[in-house]
Protein backbone atom coordinates (compact mmCIF):
# COMPACT_ATOMS: atom_id res chain seq x y z
CA UNK A 1 0.00 0.00 0.00
CA UNK A 2 2.56 2.49 1.17
CA UNK A 3 4.79 2.15 -1.86
CA UNK A 4 2.02 2.19 -4.42
CA UNK A 5 -0.13 4.93 -2.98
CA UNK A 6 1.97 7.39 -1.04
CA UNK A 7 -0.91 9.86 -1.15
CA UNK A 8 -3.31 7.41 0.43
CA UNK A 9 -0.80 6.70 3.18
CA UNK A 10 -0.32 10.40 3.80
CA UNK A 11 -4.03 10.99 4.05
CA UNK A 12 -4.43 8.01 6.32
CA UNK A 13 -1.61 9.08 8.59
CA UNK A 14 -3.03 12.60 8.64
CA UNK A 15 -6.37 11.35 9.92
CA UNK A 16 -4.64 9.02 12.34
CA UNK A 17 -2.69 11.98 13.67
CA UNK A 18 -5.82 14.08 14.10
CA UNK A 19 -7.51 11.14 15.80
CA UNK A 20 -4.69 10.61 18.27
CA UNK A 21 -4.49 14.33 18.96
CA UNK A 22 -8.20 14.38 19.77
CA UNK A 23 -7.82 11.39 22.07
CA UNK A 24 -4.91 13.13 23.73
CA UNK A 25 -7.09 16.22 24.25
CA UNK A 26 -9.86 14.02 25.65
CA UNK A 27 -7.41 12.43 28.04
CA UNK A 28 -6.33 15.90 29.15
CA UNK A 29 -9.87 16.92 30.01
CA UNK A 30 -10.53 13.66 31.79
CA UNK A 31 -7.43 13.97 33.93
CA UNK A 32 -7.86 17.71 34.45
CA UNK A 33 -10.83 17.18 36.71
CA UNK A 34 -9.56 14.24 38.70
CA UNK A 35 -7.38 14.49 41.76
CA UNK A 36 -4.58 15.05 42.53
CA UNK A 37 -3.73 18.34 40.87
CA UNK A 38 -0.02 19.05 40.59
CA UNK A 39 -0.28 22.63 41.73
CA UNK A 40 3.40 23.29 42.33
CA UNK A 41 4.40 22.01 38.93
CA UNK A 42 1.57 24.06 37.42
CA UNK A 43 2.89 27.24 39.04
CA UNK A 44 6.41 26.38 37.92
CA UNK A 45 5.19 25.97 34.35
CA UNK A 46 3.24 29.24 34.53
CA UNK A 47 6.42 30.94 35.59
CA UNK A 48 8.43 29.23 32.86
CA UNK A 49 5.94 30.13 30.15
CA UNK A 50 4.67 33.46 31.42
CA UNK A 51 7.54 35.32 33.00
CA UNK A 52 10.25 33.74 30.90
CA UNK A 53 8.46 34.70 27.66
CA UNK A 54 7.80 38.22 28.84
CA UNK A 55 10.96 39.79 27.46
CA UNK A 56 10.55 38.11 24.10
CA UNK A 57 6.89 39.07 23.83
CA UNK A 58 7.66 42.59 25.02
CA UNK A 59 10.40 43.19 22.46
CA UNK A 60 8.41 41.62 19.64
CA UNK A 61 5.28 43.57 20.54
CA UNK A 62 7.13 46.84 20.83
CA UNK A 63 8.83 46.47 17.46
CA UNK A 64 5.57 45.28 15.94
CA UNK A 65 3.78 48.45 17.01
CA UNK A 66 6.72 50.61 15.98
CA UNK A 67 7.15 49.12 12.52
CA UNK A 68 3.47 48.76 11.81
CA UNK A 69 2.92 52.44 12.53
CA UNK A 70 5.96 53.55 10.57
CA UNK A 71 4.85 51.53 7.57
CA UNK A 72 1.23 52.68 7.66
CA UNK A 73 2.00 56.37 8.12
CA UNK A 74 3.02 57.29 4.54
CA UNK A 75 -0.05 55.75 2.95
CA UNK A 76 -2.45 57.28 5.44
CA UNK A 77 -0.72 60.63 5.20
CA UNK A 78 -1.26 60.56 1.47
CA UNK A 79 -4.97 60.45 2.11
CA UNK A 80 -4.63 63.08 4.77
CA UNK A 81 -5.87 60.51 7.23
CA UNK A 82 -2.90 60.31 9.55
CA UNK A 83 -5.20 61.15 12.44
CA UNK A 84 -6.67 57.72 11.85
CA UNK A 85 -3.45 55.94 12.77
CA UNK A 86 -4.27 55.36 16.46
CA UNK A 87 -7.64 53.81 15.78
CA UNK A 88 -6.49 51.81 12.76
CA UNK A 89 -3.37 50.48 14.44
CA UNK A 90 -5.10 49.69 17.71
CA UNK A 91 -7.94 47.82 16.09
CA UNK A 92 -5.69 45.72 13.90
CA UNK A 93 -3.29 45.00 16.73
CA UNK A 94 -5.91 44.13 19.32
CA UNK A 95 -8.12 42.17 16.98
CA UNK A 96 -5.71 40.24 14.88
CA UNK A 97 -2.04 41.02 14.56
CA UNK A 98 -1.20 41.08 18.26
CA UNK A 99 -2.80 37.76 19.15
CA UNK A 100 -1.58 35.95 16.07
CA UNK A 101 2.00 37.22 16.08
CA UNK A 102 2.43 36.69 19.80
CA UNK A 103 0.85 33.25 19.61
CA UNK A 104 3.24 32.34 16.81
CA UNK A 105 6.21 33.60 18.82
CA UNK A 106 4.99 31.54 21.77
CA UNK A 107 4.47 28.52 19.56
CA UNK A 108 8.13 28.87 18.70
CA UNK A 109 9.27 29.39 22.23
CA UNK A 110 6.83 27.47 24.44
CA UNK A 111 5.63 24.83 21.98
CA UNK A 112 9.08 23.76 20.91
CA UNK A 113 10.44 23.73 24.44
CA UNK A 114 7.54 21.56 25.63
CA UNK A 115 8.02 19.25 22.65
CA UNK A 116 11.76 18.97 23.22
CA UNK A 117 11.48 18.62 26.99
CA UNK A 118 8.82 15.94 26.99
CA UNK A 119 10.44 14.26 24.01
CA UNK A 120 13.77 13.94 25.77
CA UNK A 121 12.04 12.85 28.98
CA UNK A 122 10.28 10.15 27.00
CA UNK A 123 13.45 9.00 25.27
CA UNK A 124 15.54 8.90 28.45
CA UNK A 125 12.77 7.05 30.30
CA UNK A 126 12.16 9.90 32.72
CA UNK A 127 8.45 9.56 32.04
CA UNK A 128 8.63 5.87 32.91
CA UNK A 129 10.59 6.77 36.02
CA UNK A 130 7.78 9.07 37.12
CA UNK A 131 5.21 6.39 36.56
CA UNK A 132 7.26 3.96 38.63
CA UNK A 133 7.64 6.58 41.36
CA UNK A 134 3.88 6.56 41.80
CA UNK A 135 3.28 9.87 40.01
CA UNK A 136 0.93 10.02 37.06
CA UNK A 137 3.23 11.55 34.46
CA UNK A 138 0.32 12.68 32.30
CA UNK A 139 -1.02 14.74 35.17
CA UNK A 140 2.36 15.94 36.27
CA UNK A 141 3.72 16.85 32.85
CA UNK A 142 0.87 17.23 30.39
CA UNK A 143 -2.07 18.58 32.38
CA UNK A 144 0.03 21.22 34.09
CA UNK A 145 1.68 22.37 30.87
CA UNK A 146 -1.47 22.58 28.77
CA UNK A 147 -3.29 24.40 31.54
CA UNK A 148 -0.40 26.79 32.11
CA UNK A 149 -0.15 27.57 28.40
CA UNK A 150 -3.92 28.10 28.16
CA UNK A 151 -3.89 30.59 31.01
CA UNK A 152 -0.60 32.33 30.28
CA UNK A 153 -1.14 33.04 26.58
CA UNK A 154 -4.02 35.51 27.07
CA UNK A 155 -1.93 37.39 29.60
CA UNK A 156 1.07 37.46 27.28
CA UNK A 157 -1.11 38.64 24.42
CA UNK A 158 -2.65 41.43 26.48
CA UNK A 159 0.79 42.44 27.60
CA UNK A 160 2.10 42.26 24.02
CA UNK A 161 -0.81 44.32 22.66
CA UNK A 162 -0.20 46.93 25.30
CA UNK A 163 3.50 47.18 24.54
CA UNK A 164 2.76 47.28 20.80
CA UNK A 165 0.43 50.23 21.34
CA UNK A 166 3.10 51.97 23.38
CA UNK A 167 5.51 51.44 20.48
CA UNK A 168 2.96 52.82 18.06
CA UNK A 169 2.23 55.78 20.33
CA UNK A 170 5.94 56.51 20.49
CA UNK A 171 6.15 56.78 16.71
CA UNK A 172 3.10 59.02 16.60
CA UNK A 173 4.55 61.08 19.40
CA UNK A 174 7.83 61.65 17.59
CA UNK A 175 6.69 61.81 13.98
CA UNK A 176 3.16 63.06 14.31
CA UNK A 177 3.26 65.25 17.42
CA UNK A 178 0.46 63.25 19.02
CA UNK A 179 0.66 63.13 22.80
CA UNK A 180 0.40 59.79 24.57
CA UNK A 181 -2.80 60.95 26.21
CA UNK A 182 -4.39 61.87 22.88
CA UNK A 183 -3.12 58.66 21.33
CA UNK A 184 -4.64 56.41 23.96
CA UNK A 185 -7.75 58.54 24.06
CA UNK A 186 -8.25 57.87 20.38
CA UNK A 187 -7.37 54.21 20.85
CA UNK A 188 -10.07 53.70 23.42
CA UNK A 189 -12.43 55.72 21.29
CA UNK A 190 -11.88 53.32 18.42
CA UNK A 191 -11.81 50.09 20.38
CA UNK A 192 -15.00 48.37 21.32
CA UNK A 193 -15.80 45.20 23.20
CA UNK A 194 -16.19 43.44 19.88
CA UNK A 195 -12.49 44.07 19.34
CA UNK A 196 -11.22 43.14 22.78
CA UNK A 197 -13.40 40.26 23.93
CA UNK A 198 -13.29 37.91 20.94
CA UNK A 199 -9.55 38.48 20.69
CA UNK A 200 -9.07 37.60 24.35
CA UNK A 201 -11.37 34.61 23.96
CA UNK A 202 -9.44 33.18 21.10
CA UNK A 203 -6.12 33.69 22.86
CA UNK A 204 -7.16 31.04 25.39
CA UNK A 205 -7.60 28.63 22.51
CA UNK A 206 -4.24 29.68 21.08
CA UNK A 207 -2.62 28.81 24.39
CA UNK A 208 -4.47 25.53 24.57
CA UNK A 209 -3.35 24.62 21.05
CA UNK A 210 0.28 25.47 21.83
CA UNK A 211 0.26 23.40 25.01
CA UNK A 212 -1.70 20.52 23.53
CA UNK A 213 0.34 20.03 20.38
CA UNK A 214 3.64 20.56 22.19
CA UNK A 215 2.74 17.94 24.80
CA UNK A 216 1.26 15.57 22.22
CA UNK A 217 4.35 15.65 20.05
CA UNK A 218 6.74 15.39 22.98
CA UNK A 219 4.80 12.72 24.85
CA UNK A 220 4.57 10.54 21.76
CA UNK A 221 8.09 11.23 20.60
CA UNK A 222 9.89 8.32 19.00
CA UNK A 223 13.14 6.90 20.30
CA UNK A 224 16.47 8.57 19.86
CA UNK A 225 17.71 12.12 19.70
CA UNK A 226 16.33 12.50 16.16
CA UNK A 227 12.89 11.77 17.58
CA UNK A 228 13.28 14.61 20.10
CA UNK A 229 14.28 17.03 17.35
CA UNK A 230 11.34 15.96 15.26
CA UNK A 231 9.00 16.34 18.22
CA UNK A 232 10.14 19.90 18.84
CA UNK A 233 10.05 20.81 15.18
CA UNK A 234 6.69 19.31 14.34
CA UNK A 235 5.23 20.80 17.53
CA UNK A 236 6.00 24.27 16.17
CA UNK A 237 4.86 23.51 12.61
CA UNK A 238 1.58 21.87 13.63
CA UNK A 239 0.86 24.51 16.23
CA UNK A 240 1.42 27.36 13.78
CA UNK A 241 -0.98 25.79 11.34
CA UNK A 242 -3.51 25.08 14.06
CA UNK A 243 -3.26 28.68 15.25
CA UNK A 244 -4.37 29.97 11.87
CA UNK A 245 -7.22 27.49 11.71
CA UNK A 246 -8.38 28.54 15.18
CA UNK A 247 -8.03 32.16 14.18
CA UNK A 248 -10.17 31.61 11.12
CA UNK A 249 -12.85 29.87 13.13
CA UNK A 250 -12.72 32.60 15.77
CA UNK A 251 -13.10 35.37 13.21
CA UNK A 252 -15.91 33.46 11.55
CA UNK A 253 -17.74 33.03 14.85
CA UNK A 254 -17.16 36.66 15.78
CA UNK A 255 -18.68 37.75 12.50
CA UNK A 256 -21.59 35.44 13.15
CA UNK A 257 -22.20 36.75 16.65
CA UNK A 258 -21.56 40.45 16.13
CA UNK A 259 -22.60 40.43 12.48
Amino acid sequence: MAENFPMATNVKSFFTEIGSLSRFAGRFFKQLFSRPFEFREFLRQCYQMGNKSLLLVGITGFILGLVFTLQSRPTLEEFGASSWIPSMISISIVREIGPVIIALICAGRIGSSIGAELGSMKVTEQIDAMEVSGTNPFKFLVVTRILAATLMLPLLIIFGDFVALIGSALVENIKGQVSFLLYFNQVFDALGFRDLLPATGKSFFFGFAIGLVGCFKGYNSSKGTAGVGRAANSAVVYTSMLLFIIDFIAVFLTELIYG
Binding site: E117, S120, M121, T124, E125, Q126, D128, A129, M130, V132, S133, G134, T135
Partner: peptide, 30 residues
Protein backbone atom coordinates in the same frame (compact mmCIF):
# COMPACT_ATOMS: atom_id res chain seq x y z
CA UNK B 1 5.60 0.24 43.22
CA UNK B 2 6.83 1.86 46.42
CA UNK B 3 8.19 -1.57 47.31
CA UNK B 4 10.09 -1.78 44.04
CA UNK B 5 13.12 0.31 43.21
CA UNK B 6 13.88 0.76 39.53
CA UNK B 7 17.24 1.78 38.11
CA UNK B 8 16.76 2.84 34.51
CA UNK B 9 19.14 2.18 31.69
CA UNK B 10 20.21 5.80 31.19
CA UNK B 11 19.73 6.83 34.85
CA UNK B 12 16.57 8.77 33.84
CA UNK B 13 17.20 11.59 36.29
CA UNK B 14 14.78 14.48 35.88
CA UNK B 15 16.77 17.13 34.00
CA UNK B 16 14.78 20.06 35.28
CA UNK B 17 15.20 19.20 38.95
CA UNK B 18 18.11 19.29 41.34
CA UNK B 19 19.50 16.11 42.87
CA UNK B 20 17.50 16.80 46.01
CA UNK B 21 14.27 17.21 44.05
CA UNK B 22 15.05 14.08 42.10
CA UNK B 23 15.37 12.09 45.29
CA UNK B 24 12.31 13.68 46.86
CA UNK B 25 10.21 12.84 43.85
CA UNK B 26 9.45 9.20 44.75
CA UNK B 27 8.63 10.31 48.30
CA UNK B 28 6.00 12.91 47.40
CA UNK B 29 3.25 10.36 46.76
CA UNK B 30 4.01 8.35 49.86
Amino acid sequence: RAEIGFLFQGSALYDSMTVRENLEFPLRRH
